[in-house]
Measured scan of single mutants.
Amino acid sequence: MGFKLLSKLLVYLTASIMAIASPLAFSVDSSGEYPTVSEIPVGEVRLYQIADGVWSHIATQSFDGAVYPSNGLIVRDGDELLLIDTAWGAKNTAALLAEIEKQIGLPVTRAVSTHFHDDRVGGVDVLRAAGVATYASPSTRRLAEVEGNEIPTHSLEGLSSSGDAVRFGPVELFYPGAAHSTDNLIVYVPSASVLYGGCAIYELSRTSAGNVADADLAEWPTSIERIQQHYPEAQFVIPGHGLPGGLDLLKHTTNVVKAHTNRSVVE
């Protein structure tokens, strides 16, 4: 069995187990497998329904001669939608809004960016022009300005110390501490036991640490421990890039980060 097929099978099995364990909360999309990078042309966006009122959005972007996937989250909030992270750029984010209108038909009224990198804030200006209120932590807003990236308009308070959590509509926002970046936030959907790890969490097929220019490698494993301790009931975990899975993604990420750190020390 090929690795790609095995990865998709694991996603399907995880979703099936969740649907059985929580039949009222989960209505997993039966329309197909989780979209992969090879299936999404740059400039297009796919939506994948995880649970009743919960979707991931998947886009792709060219970077350094390669094409990478990027995940975000959409959560229903009454007759409105909360968006977590842009679709990595203005063109993708405009396509995301169009796809949401086509498939869901509810307005996106608020959006949260989970850290300051372009795959999370690139497209904020498109959201703002569409009347979406954009939010991020003060740290993310400051770092985005320093980096020359787009800056969300509103500040999220109460997320300055490791372990801080605040309720934001249908989700809980959690600051686990520094990891992929010093400002990275985690998003949890309690009604569906869905954990969105953003770039602080890796997919299972990833074996290298990737972009760690703004990471705190020493603190990252401790931050992941905080996530595990705060959300032990999480059933569906979405990484910032690639295929979702279960809580095993947290341990896998820790292993990859520690291996990278150990290699760096040896070198």
Rank of each mutant, 00 (worst) to 15 (best):
A130K: 15
S181I: 00
G65M: 14
M18C: 05
Y12Q: 09
P69S: 14
N92I: 03
A209K: 15
A218L: 15
A179M: 06
V256L: 15
H260F: 08
P170R: 12
V166P: 04
L13K: 10
F63D: 09
Q103C: 15
V126R: 09
Y12E: 05
V265L: 09
A130M: 15
D64V: 12
T109P: 12
L249C: 01
S56M: 15
G53Y: 06
A200C: 14
R142F: 15
Q61M: 08
S193A: 10
T93P: 01
V67A: 08
L217D: 12
P239I: 02
R110S: 07
L10H: 08
V237H: 01
I104G: 00
V266N: 06
G123V: 02
N149F: 14
V124P: 03
V237F: 05
V108D: 01
F26S: 09
E80W: 10
S56F: 15
L81V: 12
I17L: 06
V126Q: 14
S223Q: 03
F168R: 02
N71M: 01
E233L: 14
Q229M: 13
A192V: 07
S191P: 05
T253C: 01
L250P: 03
Y231M: 05
P69Q: 15
P170M: 09
L204R: 09
E147Q: 11
S56G: 10
A136K: 03
E39A: 10
E267N: 05
E233M: 10
I186A: 11
S27R: 10
V37D: 11
A209Y: 12
N211H: 14
P41K: 09
L97M: 05
A66N: 14
H57G: 02
V45F: 03
L247N: 05
A130W: 09
E150P: 15
A94V: 11
N255G: 11
D64T: 13
E101Q: 13
N211P: 05
D119A: 03
P190V: 05
R263L: 10
L195I: 07
H230M: 10
V265T: 15
S162H: 07
R206E: 14
P170Y: 04
L185H: 00
D248C: 05
L10E: 09
V11K: 05
L143K: 15
V266F: 15
L247C: 13
A87K: 00
T207G: 11
D64M: 15
G72D: 03
G105Y: 15
H260P: 12
P244V: 06
D125W: 07
S113Y: 04
E99D: 13
G72K: 02
Y188L: 02
L156T: 05
R128S: 12
T36H: 15
L127G: 01
V132I: 14
E44I: 07
A165R: 11
Y48T: 09
T140H: 03
L96T: 03
V187E: 01
E99K: 10
A51G: 11
I74A: 13
P176T: 01
E225L: 15
D164P: 09
G65I: 15
N211W: 13
V28P: 15
I224F: 03
G105D: 14
E267S: 14
Y48R: 08
S155Q: 06
A259Y: 07
V189F: 07
S137T: 07
A66L: 10
Y196D: 01
N255S: 10
V212L: 12
F168W: 08
K102N: 15
N92G: 14
D118C: 09
T140E: 03
G246E: 06
P170G: 10
T207H: 15
P69K: 07
L97A: 01
K258Y: 15
V75G: 02
E39P: 11
A95C: 11
A144T: 12
E44P: 11
S191H: 10
S155V: 15
D125V: 08
V45R: 02
S264I: 15
G163I: 08
T140C: 04
S139C: 08
G169R: 04
A209V: 12
G177M: 00
T254M: 08
G197P: 10
P107R: 15
G89I: 01
E101R: 11
T93M: 04
G198C: 04
A94T: 12
T254G: 13
G122T: 08
A234M: 14
T253H: 00
